[in-house]
Design a binder for these strands. Structure first.
Lengths: 237, 237
DNA sequence: GTCTATAAAGCGATAGAC
DNA sequence: GTCTATCGCTTTATAGAC
């Protein structure tokens, strides 16, 4: 593509909230590979990344890489599975909260935004997964990816239905509202350099993250609520 | 990728509203190539498509393809330029309309949704352009793509600023609202098979397009308006 | 303007030594 | 578990005949 600089940190200890396993050394290179691949797949997509580049940045040979992940697709799915697992966590956090369906929906949006803002690779990869359906060939999907996705979507759908029946939400078509929610949640944090340009500042800077969350929550609240009394959507964030 | 069936119609006369040029035969194969490439790039992305496949589906040899477009990137940019030119048309339509800033914003959204719904390749390609910024290497961008994009974004930004100052819109951060608008507008029509699954029916079927437009317009209106009196966003659509 | 043939490099994946 | 070397194929792009 181009003589890229050290686009990905040579070692990427920027692993996030969920520390998987208490082992100090076992599977160490596996995590390094996953981190490296996650960054590259997020930026360039599945087809845009070569195993050669992943191996180089993860500091091992291509063959060693094949020992951990028998095929390129296995590696890609492992990356996705890790992300989807994390995102499903947001759901349990939020759905256990109390209040109206609208409040629980907003709590979920809040948790999702936090999770997406935490690592700049998540939204791009999620976006690619949803709208490049060809890569995850139809039904050959892995349960580690499809399961969490399906459960998240069902939970959102339930919340919307519940809110409509309770009179919290306007009578909206649930699937279309779901699509718009996904678009609003994902695009901003997936927009990379374009988003930085629009904002004039880094999308993932703390102040812009805060500002974005505030706007999105108020947008969704006033846009979907049956009684948009709230001039400023101040949530317990 | 896989032994694809005739994923792209062998000849693709599904060209849309804008009939470019009055010539009956000149540049005929050029248009065929662009149609074919547009469909493939939309589905698989820049890196996911080979010139071999494009040439096969456009029914000419790879070398003949190189005669029309000297490099793969030239072809990709030509595809984008055609789309961005069309989309800029929506802007002039809508901005010439009368009424409040909010009304003109909604008129633009209305026109954009029509344009995106007209051809199932537009939203995916636009989405890819915005969030795979690496492909259009930064500043080496062609004016045929970057110009329309810049003008569209500036127009939207102006409308939002104007609406806020006039008191039509809530006091929202314009760049963040722009990002959310883009997400809402693009994702649904870019979501491919995923969207079909969510809806249970084809995203690009007439009834679902109508339903989606209705919802999105009401969502944006109530979500951004300073006085969301409208329980159902009935616009002159 | 379209073709066949080919170049030069990269791809995913494998074999087999250590 | 990691390595070197290689296989077979595809990629973008070019050369040159017609």
């Amino acid at each position: 593509m181009k003589p890229t600089g050290p686009e990905v940190p040579l070692t990427q200890p920027a692993s996030n909230q969920i520390q998987r396993g208490a082992d100090t050394h076992a599977g160490e290179s596996r995590e390094t590979i996953l981190d490296t691949a996650e960054a590259l797949f997020a930026r360039h997509g599945y087809e845009g990344v070569g195993l050669r580049e992943i191996a180089r940045l993860a500091q091992l040979s291509k063959s060693a890489l094949f020992h951990h992940f028998p095929t390129k697709m296995d590696l890609y799915l492992a990356v996705l599975a890790r992300i989807f697992g994390d995102l499903e966590g947001c759901l349990s956090e939020a759905s256990s909260s109390e209040g109206s369906a609208l409040a629980r929906l907003l709590a979920w949006v809040d948790a999702m935004l936090d999770a997406l803002a935490e690592r700049d690779t998540r939204a791009p990869l999620l976006m690619r997964t949803l709208f490049e359906g060809e890569v995850l060939e139809h039904d050959s999907d892995t349960p580690e990816v499809n399961g969490p996705l399906k459960r998240i979507l069902e939970a959102v759908s339930s919340l919307l239905h519940e809110g409509i029946e309770a009179g919290d939400l306007r009578p909206i078509p649930v699937p279309h509202a779901t699509q718009s929610l996904i678009g609003v949640l994902l695009f901003h944090f997936a927009s990379g350099g374009f988003g930085d340009e629009i904002l004039g500042r880094p999308v993932f800077s703390a102040t812009e993250i805060r500002r974005h969350k505030e706007f999105v929550l108020s947008f969704i609240e006033t846009g979907l609520s049956a009684r948009p009394n709230h001039p400023q959507g101040a949530l317990g964030s």
